[in-house]
Design a protein around this nucleic acid. Structure first.
Lengths: 333, 333
DNA sequence: CCCTGAAATAATAGCGCTATTATGTTTGAC
DNA sequence: GTCAAACATAATAGCGCTATTATTTCAGGG
């Protein structure tokens, strides 16, 4: 299938294959005249380099493996899209894997990723199986963990503290004079980051204001339907509730709709705060107060770290970047 | 970095490297005793195959390149996630690329993809640059085009007719006695599929019922904010409107919120139909009538075609699978 | 002009596998 | 028992590059 090789290009340009290889990898090291001849030859032959041969010879490929819980999740989709764009500029390809929130699956994916000798591996969060850690430590592949800060990273990490997100949510509701608070969570068994947010929320609310706080959750993934259901449950169990924080904006959207149906006034009777600043959050009725996590910034910073680390082509280089997050105060609180 | 090779495994199992290779590729062709010894050896040495060496030798890799406009878009995210899961079962890896709706970028991505000698290439839609077509035709890589049916595919295609979606939307609104119709579209310059839906909508409405129909659009990507804006524009230009179809559910959600704010009764005064059946569509207030495109089915069918095609490891095999779509009638119409 | 060092180019030796072909080793029919 | 098929295993020859080292070319100072 791939007929044209580097040798063909070299022959046509009347230089050696090594020079073509050099031109492709470090154009500055080749003279202008040779460069021109090679460029013309590549053009004429419509040469497509074989990256597998290159990767094999160099013992490292131009692929970056990105492993996320699910790309169906808008947060990770944002980061993956941004990273692909940034890495693509340097002709690095993205190898994608989904763990579906399973550490076992993550381990498989890491093993598969390693067989590509990737230029870097990106993992979501800081919780991994011991085997995964071991595999990565023993390889010399750069590792970046994204979307979470807190415990010790394997090498580099880019993200923010979810527990602080919970604290900010609580502080905001308390500041709006809410003292009967509930955290609505979806799929918290698996989504450790949502759990951290809930924990921060509860602790901050109790400690700083003596508010009454509860967590009400559902095992299904986040959705407006789950949000509506959880609001119903909350009103039954805890009718005096006046402030709700949601594990994400989908849940919050469900709360808003269910409140409309039940005739509950937001923010008069109930303040609502979400997480995610999803595409609908600013346009909802009322517009949704939420926490904006910098999914794109996480992507650009992670890509930057990878690129720097490749350029250094050296040792492990522990780095932690706290991207922070923003609270967007809108009508719902 | 990757110390353990197939030779090490072979030495420890006291067989030849060829036998190990055979065991890995066609386990049935190796005797039980040899298999056991090799399996133990792999386990003990924690052997990770080098896929680049394998791919180079075989002139084809275990990577499938999936190129979508954007994984930020929930539709494509769904399909990518499904395909990754299905292909992963056969140890095929997903190489991801985003065109951001640019044919130029798509061409670059195809070129990059080909340098991996992928087991297959998946493209979104049927519109590609001539150079892209040429590249793919001249390679012998299996090609699947997803999410759109209509014109001639390069090789295989899995999707549905968007123009039919538009027709179904129009037919539905007409059946609900709506005769003053508007199609609200976001980013239609770039999203050809949305344009096809709009065209089908207009044609069906005009032809079958003599309804008054208009298309109102905005160049920004779909969002609830764009939906709200477009509704405002519609009410100004065309106050007698009684039926609205949206290019997708994000836009429809914005319409619903804006109607709440303007005191427009849905479905009393205005029927609304969306496209996508996104996670919030069933839970909104009112719940949203919409078209459900089978994003997951597209993924499983595309994966199946690829797997079959690889097993056949043969010739081009033109196949078209029409996955259809479903109209979900809910409260908004 | 020769010499030195820097710059540019070329030769060389694999990277770790697969696929094809060659060589043993059984099995079963006569 | 013999012989051909059928089966199991092994030897062989690259796949198309990169990285290292070796060689050539070219300035510019003495």
């Amino acid at each position: 299938m791939q007929r044209v090789t580097m040798m063909d290009v070299a022959a046509r340009a009347e230089v050696s294959p090594s020079t073509v290889s050099l031109y492709l990898r470090k154009p500055d090291a080749v003279s202008a005249s040779a460069s021109e001849a090679i460029a013309k030859s590549i053009e004429a032959l419509n040469y497509v380099p074989n990256l597998m041969a290159g990767g094999l010879a160099a013992a490292s490929s131009r692929a970056v493996s990105i492993i996320v819980p699910s790309v169906r999740n808008a947060f990770f989709a944002e980061t993956v899209a941004t990273m692909q764009a940034e890495l693509g500029k340097e002709r690095l390809q993205v190898l994608l894997g989904h763990t579906e929130y399973s550490e076992r699956e993550e381990e498989n994916l890491v093993r598969m990723a390693l067989s590509w000798a990737p230029a870097a591996i990106v993992l979501t969060g800081l919780s991994h199986s011991n085997a995964t850690r071991k595999l990565l430590r023993e390889s010399s592949v750069p590792v970046v963990e994204i979307w979470e800060l807190g415990s010790e990273p394997i090498e580099m990490a880019v993200g923010f503290h979810h527990e602080q997100v919970g604290r900010s949510m609580a502080a905001h509701l308390v500041q709006r004079n809410r003292r009967n608070l509930v955290f609505l969570g979806a799929r918290m068994q698996e989504d450790k980051r949502a759990t951290h947010r809930a924990e921060g929320f509860v602790e901050e609310a109790r400690k700083t204001s003596g508010a009454i706080v509860d967590i009400i959750q559902h095992p299904a993934p986040s959705s407006a339907e789950v949000g509506a259901m959880l609001l119903g449950e909350t009103m039954r169990k805890f009718p005096q509730v006046d402030g709700i924080a949601c594990s994400n904006d989908h849940v919050a959207l469900g709360v808003i709709f269910e409140c409309q149906r039940l005739g509950i006034d937001i923010p008069g009777q109930l303040s609502v705060i979400g997480f995610g600043d999803l595409s609908f959050s600013a346009a909802s009725n009322p517009s949704l107060t939420t926490i904006r996590p910098p999914g794109d910034l996480i992507g650009t910073e992670a890509a930057r770290l990878i690129l720097e680390r490749i350029a250094d082509n050296g040792e492990r280089k522990p780095t932690v970047i706290d991207t922070r997050f923003t609270l967007l105060h809108r009508q719902s609180s």
